[in-house]
């Protein structure tokens, strides 16, 4: 008897309590978070395969200024700090950070047109390599906060990868008769008519799980 764990929310499917995993229908969904069958993995993990990075990360030494950070990174730092100011009720400061974030967001346009497959390659590399090395460092330095961010992002990334695969196969059918939501805190994506009561990844209430509307 084998066990399969949902990589999004941690729900474990145990074959001993029901059908064999392979006999479950292809449209089986996690009863907790709605993740598809492909987001599950067998509890005994197989060793990761090696793939090469789709990005040049040599410049990333942790020394930050506008020459070493990309426009996208500066924008994300500033939009995040704007939220920090908002929580502290520092409203002019929030608006100033948002202004800088907007400026660099406009600057951050990729040179070449991108396809979903390009994103897929990057998220594959994150899930095969980057998360493992970051998690190892966070653990060896007992950095609980970094570890927390990695646990959440790894789950949200797994959902991204699953949905990129499904969109590739199913196309518009994936969203045609349903809605799509993104957790405003951790980035978890949920497809369904109504969002879960709490985010299955970061546990924030559903008021922070926002619908992405069409058109």
């Amino acid at each position: 008897m084998k066990k399969y764990i949902c990589t999004i929310c941690g729900y474990v499917y145990d074959e001993s309590s029901g059908a064999k995993w392979d006999e479950l229908p292809n449209d089986y969904k996690c009863p907790i978070c709605g993740a598809p069958k492909s987001a599950f993995k067998q509890v005994e993990e197989s060793p990761a395969k090696t793939i090469s990075s789709p990005l040049d990360t040599e410049n990333h030494n942790g020394i930050d200024n506008f020459t070493t950070l990309t426009a996208g990174e500066i924008s994300a730092i500033c939009s995040s700090l704007a939220k920090g100011c908002d929580k502290q009720r520092l409203l002019p400061e929030r608006d100033a950070f948002n202004k800088i974030a907007e400026y660099f967001k406009a600057k951050a346009k990729p040179e070449n047109s991108k396809a979903f497959q390009d994103i897929k390659k990057m998220v594959d590399y994150d899930l095969e390599i980057n998360f493992a090395s970051a998690t190892e460092k966070a653990k060896s330095n007992s950095d609980r906060g970094a570890l927390r961010s990695l646990v959440w992002s790894e789950k949200a990334s797994t959902m991204c990868r699953v949905l990129l695969d499904r969109f590739n196969k199913e196309g518009e059918g994936l969203l045609k008769n349903t809605k799509i939501y993104v957790c405003d805190i951790c980035g978890f994506i949920y497809i369904g008519d109504t969002p879960p009561e709490i985010c299955p990844v970061c546990k924030v209430p559903k008021s922070k799980i926002l619908e992405v509307e069409r058109g």
Binding site: L55, T57, H60, G62, T70, G72, E73, S75, A76, A108, P110, M122, Y125, D126, N130, F131, S133, A134, K137, A138, A146, S149, L150, S153
Partner: peptide, 11 residues
């Protein structure tokens, strides 16, 4: 390692 991931996510 955090920056490496953040860079990838920003991309």
């Amino acid at each position: 390692t955090q920056r490496k991931l953040a860079y990838s996510k920003a991309q």
